[in-house]
Design a protein around this nucleic acid. Sequence first.
DNA 1: CACTTGACCTGTCCGC
DNA 2: TGCGGACAGGTCAAGT
Length: 296
Amino acid sequence: MPELPEVETVKRGLEELVVNRVVESVAFDWPKGFPNSQTDVDAFLLKAEVTSIARRGKALIITLSTNYALVVHLKMTGQLVFVSDEARFGAGHPNDSLIHHLPDRSTRVTLRFADGSALFFNDQRKFGWMKLLPEGQVMDLPFFKNLGPEPLEPEFTSKIFVQRFKNRGRSTIKAALLDQKVLAGVGNIYADEALFAAKIHPATRVADVPKKKMELLYEELRTVLQKSIAAGGSSDKNYVNAEGKKGSYLTFAKVFRLEGKPCPRCGTIIEKIRVAGRGTHVCPYCQKAPKTKVKE
DNA sequence: CACTTGACCTGTCCGC
DNA sequence: TGCGGACAGGTCAAGT
């Protein structure tokens, strides 16, 4: 699921909802996704206060007063959902209805706070993970090694963007966009949307994309990511924010999951093909296929 | 090293 | 209705 805009949305929600809360209990039985020992949890998570929330790429970093941090990756179907204590917070809280549904069968870890509220880590497909480790060791996790720059940072210029694709000339532009070593945070939805906006066919070799087009792609990618954050991200299926609510970006999407519908720019029917091993949405007229034919 | 493919899981949808 | 297969927002390891 979550790509940069979705994870950013969750991050902002957690800042509002869980910072300053104190962990009262932890329920977990998922060695693969949350491998920490009970001893670690007791020592560094129990009684800890949540001090801040950060995002790097598609990962969240929840920092604790114990100088440990919880690092969370939601992968395809992960959710971090906060639920208030109905009795304490009163009826009418935005997600009161969730109280009666969570935990559910996809709940892998439950953090209960001292004030009666709770944070649920749900993950239907169990691809996600959460690790508790000293704050100073967070960036040593394999996930953060070689992770590319944040595309929305002000210092991330068009020039740097173009440079990141050096040595990737023979891969398709879509595969390169999805490669977290090139850029952090882009996934299947925003790769397709940005390539459509820049009128680049996803199967084009990087070396065959003119510099002008790369510069346009830079602009369009950032625009798409920003618009999605403003819309609270995309909810194709599982994604919800920290209040359990869906994002609305897909109502603005131009090609993603719109195969069979007319292109909003030219009316040609949008096609779904396979590029970089992923389902890929293109307008065959706006995004001219490269000469070297790729299997569809 | 650059690049591609399959594996990791669970659930759903589609065709027979 | 039942069953098999393909597919799903992401990374990894292992292959070429």
